[in-house]
Amino acid sequence: MSTTGDSAQHISGAAESGKECADWQALLERIPYARHLGLEVQRGDAGVLVHLPCREALIGNFMLPALHGGVLGALIELTARVAAQSQDAEIRCPRILDSHINYLRSAKARSTFARADIIRQGRRTSLVQVTCWQGDENKPIATGQVQLLLPTMAAQQEDRHGH
């Protein structure tokens, strides 16, 4: 994963990258729907990637065939969620507020990859840009921006008291 405007991220060592992969995988495995989709974390040239293996149940158009737009939506939202959570010092579980996804090319029935760029990590919110591709990373098939809310201590206590 890279952080926009933070050059320190680009010189992180291989050991650090390995730990980041393990951290992301652990966060993904806590999400039942991510496990169902079979999302797996990989180490790419420029940082951590999330891989979505293809299977027939993910098809949205069986004539092309092409992946369902909602499957790419899930890859983008879940990658953004894990990126925002791993970046948070307290590893708070974020709530997805909104997502806006642009479909750039047809998503073929094959392996899809996603990488996250944190546009802004604030105290209460995180805005994450996710890029998806198949085969050629320079030919993205979809990009998405996801806005997440990082719960404050006060909000967590309110939840506990059932307000």
């Binding site: 999400i31 039942p32 729907y33 949205g60 369902h68 909602g70 939506g73 899930a74 879940l78 579980c93």
Partner: peptide, 24 residues
């Protein structure tokens, strides 16, 4: 269904399931 959830401990449905439904 339980495999659509966003968390192990809550029964909250993953937003991405709502996304797929809206797209369809």
């Amino acid at each position: 269904q339980s495999w659509m959830f966003a968390h192990e401990d809550t029964k909250e449905i993953c937003t991405s399931v709502l996304y797929s439904l809206a797209d369809s």
